[in-house]
């Protein structure tokens, strides 16, 4: 599957024209591989038909893990493993445990969510990305279409992209 992939790239420099172009291309039944942008374009994920990310759920689950961990740790250490009289307070009183519960909830939620983000986005320090166009981190939006999964020919797609306002239409082979 990975061998010899051919792509058509539409190069846009305005995000509003890009959004219209994405809708137009998808209306013609063409499958878009991905759009690469130098900054987040609002509404692009809906235009491309992406489902909402489930990262908030991951954040919640990791957060709850932190809460549970902090509760169990404090109640076990202070209440069971080595109970000590401190200022005549209860061994396992809840109110003084709240700050640590809160901090561990936030810590695990943040770290867990970011780790999940890096894993699902396949981001690692030693990986070089498939670079379609180096200008996509500077000022151009690159709309990449995989020729193998689309029925239309390269020229038809190119003409449609030009028609939708692409500044340039390029080829890219990996």
């Amino acid at each position: 599957m990975e061998s010899n992939k051919n792509f058509v790239l539409g190069v846009f420099d305005d995000e509003d024209i890009l959004l219209q172009a994405v809708t137009k291309v998808r209306d013609r039944g063409i499958k878009i591989h991905e759009v690469y942008s130098p900054f987040p374009v609002h509404g692009l994920d809906e235009a491309l038909g992406y489902k909402r990310t489930r990262l908030p759920i991951a954040a919640f689950v990791f957060g709850m893990t932190g809460t549970a961990l902090a509760l169990i740790m404090q109640i076990w250490m202070m209440g069971y493993d080595w109970p000590m009289i401190i200022g005549g307070k209860n061994f396992a009183a809840l109110p003084p445990f709240i700050p640590v519960i809160f901090e561990l909830t936030v810590l695990l939620s943040a770290l867990g969510m970011v780790a999940t983000f890096l894993i699902v986005s396949d981001m690692k320090p030693y990986k070089w990305p498939q670079q379609f166009d180096l200008r996509s981190t500077d000022d151009k939006h690159i709309l990449a279409i995989d020729l193998a999964i689309n029925k239309l020919t390269k020229d038809d797609i190119g003409a449609l992209l030009k028609d939708s306002g692409a500044q340039e239409v390029n080829d890219k082979n990996f």
Partner: peptide, 28 residues
């Protein structure tokens, strides 16, 4: 800088997740 950027590519799907992560981190 590629290592520092974790091989960032800037695809729309990654940006969508990225914005969600930034918003939740702000909320936390």
């Amino acid at each position: 800088y590629n290592a520092l950027s974790f091989g960032w590519q800037g695809g729309a799907r990654t940006w969508m997740r990225y914005e969600s992560v930034a918003l939740i981190l702000a909320g936390l």
